[in-house]
């Protein structure tokens, strides 16, 4: 069996002297949805940032498609096929939806390909097609989240990383977003996401990681974790 598409193993590090991550490991196969859950302050977002190169690691390595990318800056990782959707401030508010998507494709120079990806994104999120000319800052929370995901997709990533994509959106919008995420994964893009809404997220997860204090506590398929009484009791509220 070949190595997973993304393998972040033994990550240890933090912002200052104290480590936030302790020997944390995350892997995602091609086309899989991997979900990181855990209590507040467990280092979920930090782990994601570490994978993306926004956190200096003292130990551990990150490989993408078998290549060690530990030394690359976030920008270089984008060029290697990693798309990142931050939790907040994830759109260009004064630019139109179309311009936001265009900016996502900034690193690409294949005009035809860009147009094709743009069509795919607009098919995936039909509401954005109607709002193409509207500044992203004027959209509702859920629509803005769609723009954010759309922008990241425009970089044509092989791995899409989402930091709490459903934070602050209504349950209906949340379900719709999860549907779209499944659709994206079916097109062959790997997904790594951090979620507060653990139960719903694990329902769509191929693999789930429960982090506690920066370390892996439980790992398994979404169904396994949902079935695990310990996990349910401690993290899913019964």
């Amino acid at each position: 069996m070949s190595a997973p598409y993304l393998a972040a193993t033994g990550m240890t590090g933090g912002y200052g002297k104290a480590d936030i991550l302790h020997d944390c490991t995350l892997t995602v196969e091609r086309g899989q949805i991997a979900v990181i859950v855990g209590p507040n302050g467990a280092g979920k977002s930090t782990a994601m940032k570490a994978v993306f190169g926004m956190l200096p690691l003292r130990e551990g390595r990150v490989t993408l498609d078998g290549e060690d990318i530990g030394a690359l800056s976030p920008q270089e990782r984008v060029r290697r096929g990693m798309g990142f959707v931050p939790q907040t401030h994830n759109v260009f508010p004064s630019m139109t939806v179309a311009e936001n998507l265009e900016m996502g494709a900034f690193i690409r120079d294949d005009d035809d390909g860009i147009a094709r990806t743009m069509d795919q994104v607009l098919t995936l999120f039909p509401v954005l097609a109607d709002k193409r000319r509207q500044p992203a800052g004027e959209l509702s929370g859920g629509q803005r989240q769609q723009v954010a995901v759309g922008r990241a997709l425009m970089t044509k990533p092989q791995l899409l990383m989402l930091d709490e994509p459903t934070a602050g959106v209504s349950p209906i919008v949340m379900d719709e977003l999860f549907d779209r995420i499944i659709e994206i994964a079916r097109s062959g893009i790997s997904i790594l996401m951090v979620e507060q809404n653990a139960r719903q997220a694990l329902e769509i997860a191929d693999i789930g990681y429960v982090l506690v204090q920066g370390a892996n506590r439980y790992t398994g398929t979404g169904a396994e974790l949902l079935a695990d009484s310990e996990v349910r009791r401690t993290f899913l509220g019964g």
Binding site: Q75, R79, N90, F92, E99, M103, F106, I107
Partner: peptide
């Protein structure tokens, strides 16, 4: 223009502009 839009993007959201490869 592409350059001009990049400027606006950077002005709007510096970090996201970096993530977009600007």
């Amino acid at each position: 223009t592409r350059s001009g839009k990049a400027m606006r993007a950077y002005s709007d959201n510096e970090d996201l502009a970096l993530l977009s490869g600007i």
